[in-house]
């Protein structure tokens, strides 16, 4: 039994995605770097990071894309497809930070075959600071048989 995909007919502008927490420990940064074939010292070598005038080892900004995508797909369901995800960095995050992803629906547009294109505005916050902002377009199909 698979999780249901959200019925696009029920999606309204202003609907909120559940907040999702993502913690980035030093172990998480090493795991992410290895999993993406990225061995850059910024993500694990504190002395090196300090030579770049950074206070800690840096969370790879590209990981924020994965956090936004996961929050969007966990909300939309397994048949949904992300067609576009654009994010802008607002502040840096470092090992030990816990980020929270939030978002809401800003547009819903019917395409062909009952598929709806749902636009999300997503944010990643790091305490009081905004870390990154995203605009995400998700294609959500109509339930089978409609």
């Amino acid at each position: 039994m698979i999780r249901p995909t959200r019925d696009p007919a029920t999606i309204r502008v202003g609907d909120a995605l559940p907040a999702r927490e993502q913690r980035f420990t030093q172990v998480d940064l090493v795991a992410y770097g290895a999993a993406t074939w990225d061995w850059h010292r910024l993500h694990y070598d504190l002395e090196y990071a300090r030579t770049k005038k950074l206070p800690g080892t840096l969370v790879d900004g590209q990981a924020f894309g994965a956090v936004f995508a996961r929050a969007a797909l966990d909300w939309a369901g397994p048949r949904a497809f992300i067609a576009r995800l654009g994010f802008k960095m607002k502040s840096m995050a470092f090992a030990g930070d816990t980020l929270i992803a939030r978002g809401e629906v800003t547009a819903v547009r019917a395409l062909d075959d009952g598929v709806h294109l749902v636009t999300l505005a997503q944010r990643l916050t790091n305490g009081e600071r905004v870390c990154a902002e995203a605009t995400t377009e998700v294609r959500v199909p109509a339930p089978a048989g409609r």
Partner: peptide
């Protein structure tokens, strides 16, 4: 210089 990410814009055609 220090290199910092400003942003990424991804477009996906299929899984």
């Amino acid at each position: 210089a220090r290199m910092i990410r400003a942003g990424n814009d991804y477009e996906f055609m299929r899984p």
